[in-house]
């Protein structure tokens, strides 16, 4: 199937269209952040401005349309600039871990033998470690900060891609056109990049778009647990962690501080949902066998 056709079908499918619109919406917000929420200090745009030093969150007002979180951090500003953080986390983690996974899986599947055995057993060892705990421990060791969160999530996030790619390569390398390329005198490098990877990449694209959402959630979880972004950094997980003391509401009113949870939570949910919708649509379009 050609790319144009994939794109046309993505737009024709209502579910994927919703996903696409959401992603485009978030994309516009991320790109337009400096205009939507102008930073007071342009040298540090990711630091959320504070409207005071009070402890209690303040409800939405004309000045702070989403209200302020604990410590008077402006929720609106945090959400807008947090979109950029979410995209950055998603693209970097998924991009690098998929790359590692594709490389490892392809080489293991293509060369086989003892190399495959060694590489896949290492992959198994990585898979045997509980993902979240491993990420927490590693981030703690490396030190707080988004960069270290990303390193930890990449380190423990490539195995599924590797396995998926390996299984794909194993089936495609028995295809006659790969043997035919070999019989034409093509080198390994050429066969892998021209004939193998292009014919096996689609499931990886699906998996990657599904993982975009979950990686952002995991990064937010680490921020929520206090080992992600530094305090005051525009990050959705951090915005939710500000709500930790206020989730149960106040005297006689359980939803008094709803905005501290619902707004950043909604942002994360919609972001993940949109990637999952696109992933689902990709799968429907690219893999008719799964329908």
């Amino acid at each position: 199937m050609e790319w144009q056709e994939v794109v046309i079908r993505l737009f024709k499918n209502k579910i994927s269209l919703i996903g696409l619109i959401l992603i485009i919406f978030f994309g516009v917000i991320a790109i337009g952040a400096p205009w939507i929420a102008p930073p007071s200090d342009p040298s540090e745009p990711y630091m959320v401005p504070r409207a005071g030093w009070g402890f209690e969150p303040q409800p939405p007002s004309s000045e702070h349309i989403f209200g302020t979180a604990e410590g008077q951090y402006d929720i609106f500003y945090g959400i807008i600039w947090g979109t950029r953080t979410a995209f950055r986390i998603g693209f970097i983690i998924v991009g690098i871990s998929s790359f590692i996974g594709i490389l490892v899986g392809t080489l293991a599947g293509y060369y086989g033998g003892w190399f495959d055995e060694v590489v896949m057993r290492i992959t198994d060892i990585f898979m045997a470690i509980p993902f979240l705990i491993a990420a927490i421990v590693m981030t703690t060791i490396l030190g707080q900060g988004l960069r270290n969160v990303m390193i930890a999530l990449i380190t423990f996030g490539w195995m599924n891609s590797a396995r998926l790619m390996r299984s794909q390569v194993l089936s495609i390398k028995e295809e006659e056109f790969v043997i035919a390329a070999d019989a034409l005198g093509a080198g390994d490098f050429r066969i892998i990049f021209k004939h193998v990877i292009l014919n096996t990449i689609f499931p990886l694209v699906i998996e990657a778009s599904m993982r975009m959402g979950s990686m952002v959630i995991t990064a937010s979880t680490l921020s929520f647990l206090g080992i992600g972004a530094p305090e005051g950094y525009a990050d959705w997980g951090q915005m939710i962690s500000f709500a930790r003391n206020w989730i149960l509401g106040g005297e006689g009113n359980a939803i008094k501080y709803w905005f501290t949870v619902v707004i950043p939570g909604g942002a994360i949910t919609l972001f993940c949902l949109s990637w999952n919708l696109i992933g689902d649509a990709f799968r429907d379009i690219l893999d008719p066998k799964l329908q």
Binding site: E175, E176, F177, A180, A183, L184, G185, H195, N199
Partner: peptide
């Protein structure tokens, strides 16, 4: 391979890269 000795296969359906 391909230069001095070349080969054609049984399945023309699968021996070309789609």
């Amino acid at each position: 391979r391909g230069n001095d000795i070349s080969m054609i296969f049984q399945e023309p359906m699968t021996s070309l890269n789609p």
